[in-house]
């Protein structure tokens, strides 16, 4: 922290200055989330709502399968684990795609001379500032069967019938990739910008090839940027709602739509929605914890 101990001006005022932010976030975020945690252990009321009676039914429903009629011996329920796994898988693939495209882009931009660099950077950031909904809708319009992409390819004679991209898992991944790509580019860019190119020179002097240098010298140094980028893409992708809904045809539940359905749709099972939310929150917190650990290790090293 700059200034640190010598700032006698605000010494002792810390709590007072923090109070507004704590109050607002404490009351309107921490308390609601805590309430969801409590709700996940309550009994569901028919057609939405809760009954104040302790119950593990929500978690039981999540993890155990007791048959369609609830009287068979419990086995592991794969439905919801499957939904979570699919969401994680989708988010993971989107993250990977972002990394594969984002890293070279960030590297390329960071190695331009300062004048053109800011223009490239400007170009990459603009889409991030455009409303996410509008970007997702635009993507849907572009890739639908009767949309410009297919019309164009059909007219060129590259394909004989529409590619059938819309309403597929691929479309969801594409949407996630497209939504969060700038999140990957920016932190990596920041890391590469700080990279000391004398390291590459040293490696070249030791007859290391370009790609070996990339793998053994550059990647470890810019790793914090890459990890930060991956987190920034992965976490929002995990609970994403718009991409699966608009691009995936709402055909399969993702975590986001599964939770939404419990509160807004026909299922009306609040404790179950709360339990699914808590499980999602736990996963995200674990990812962030691992990240924070790594950061700390990196700093102490």
């Amino acid at each position: 922290m700059a200034g640190g101990a010598s700032s006698r001006i605000y010494e002792g005022a810390g709590l007072k200055l923090m109070l507004p932010s704590w109050l607002v976030i404490g009351i309107f975020l921490l308390a609601p989330v805590a309430m969801m945690a409590v709700y996940s252990f309550l009994t569901k009321e028919f057609r939405g709502g809760v009954i104040w009676e302790f119950s593990l039914a929500a978690y039981d429903q999540f993890f155990f399968d007791r048959g369609l009629f609830g009287d068979e011996a419990p086995t592991i329920e794969w439905t919801y684990i499957g939904i979570f796994w699919r969401s994680i898988w989708q988010a993971g693939l989107a993250t990977l795609a972002c990394l594969l495209i984002g890293f070279p882009t960030a590297w390329f931009i960071a190695t331009r001379d300062p004048k053109t660099r800011s223009i490239w950077l400007f170009l990459v950031t603009i889409p991030y500032w455009v409303n996410l909904l509008i970007r997702t809708v635009s993507m849907k319009f572009l890739i639908r069967d009767t949309g410009p992409l297919n019309e164009f390819l059909l007219a060129l004679g590259v394909i004989d019938e529409p590619l059938g991209l819309i309403n597929t898992n691929f479309a969801v991944q594409l949407g996630l990739f497209y939504s969060y790509l700038p999140f990957m580019v920016l932190p990596i860019y920041a890391a590469v910008e700080r990279y000391d190119f004398s390291l590459s020179e040293a490696a070249a002097d030791l007859y290391s090839g370009t790609w070996t240098t990339l793998r053994l010298v550059i990647l470890p140094v810019v790793k914090p940027g890459i990890v930060a980028g991956c987190i920034l893409v992965f976490v929002p992708s995990l609970g994403a709602f718009l991409a699966p809904d608009l691009l995936g045809g709402a055909k399969t539940f993702m975590i986001g739509s599964l939770i939404e359905e419990q509160f807004k749709g026909s299922a009306g099972n609040w404790p179950f929605g709360a339990a699914a939310s808590m499980i999602l929150l736990t996963i995200v917190m674990c990812v962030l914890l691992v990240y924070a650990r790594n950061q700390n290790k990196g700093e102490t090293r």
Binding site: V33, F241, I259, E260, F263
Partner: peptide, 14 residues
């Protein structure tokens, strides 16, 4: 850190 969908339903219920 809290996923958006969780914030959304938690706020609604709250």
């Amino acid at each position: 850190m809290v996923p958006e969908v969780v914030t959304a339903v938690a706020s609604l219920v709250f």
